[in-house]
């Protein structure tokens, strides 16, 4: 699949040392995650003011947090591109499952009982 051409890449890097993230970066990411969690709660406490937007804010923040975890803690930012593609595939096919299930559920014609 899309990751085929990366094979040569890994060959070239045969003697490259894996990337070491500096401690400061981890501290920053950890701090950012804490701040975002507090932000989620602050948004939750005041959610009466923008009820319809609340889920989007909560999940938006969660998405940012997820990105931070994936990029730095899980080291995807410095990983081989093929591994990024592999991980992304999981989310893609999850979206497929979601999309078709939801298409069915919300386009059904409500029917009375025929019994």
């Amino acid at each position: 699949m899309a990751n085929n051409h990366n094979h040569s890449h890994s060959d070239h890097g045969a003697h490259a040392e894996p990337h070491v993230t500096p401690l400061r970066t981890y501290l920053n990411v950890g701090a950012a995650l804490f701040v975002l969690t507090f932000l989620t709660i602050i948004a939750h406490v005041f959610k009466a003011h923008y009820l319809s937007l609340a889920p989007f804010i909560a999940f938006g923040i969660a998405a940012v947090k997820a990105f931070l975890v994936m990029a730095w803690f899980m080291h995807l930012k410095y990983d081989e591109p093929s591994n990024r593609v592999i991980f992304a595939l999981g989310f893609f096919f999850l979206a497929v499952l979601f999309a078709f299930s939801i298409i069915d559920i919300f386009t059904r014609v409500p029917q009375g009982t025929v019994l």
């Binding site: 096919f93 497929v96 078709f100 298409i103 069915d104 559920i105 919300f106 386009t107 059904r108 014609v109």
Partner: peptide, 20 residues
């Protein structure tokens, strides 16, 4: 991955899903 619904044409799945 995009065709599983053809096992369900008479399951009560929506017409739109069936057609897709």
């Amino acid at each position: 991955f995009f065709v599983w619904g053809h096992h369900m044409f008479v399951s009560g799945q929506s017409e739109l899903a069936g057609v897709l």
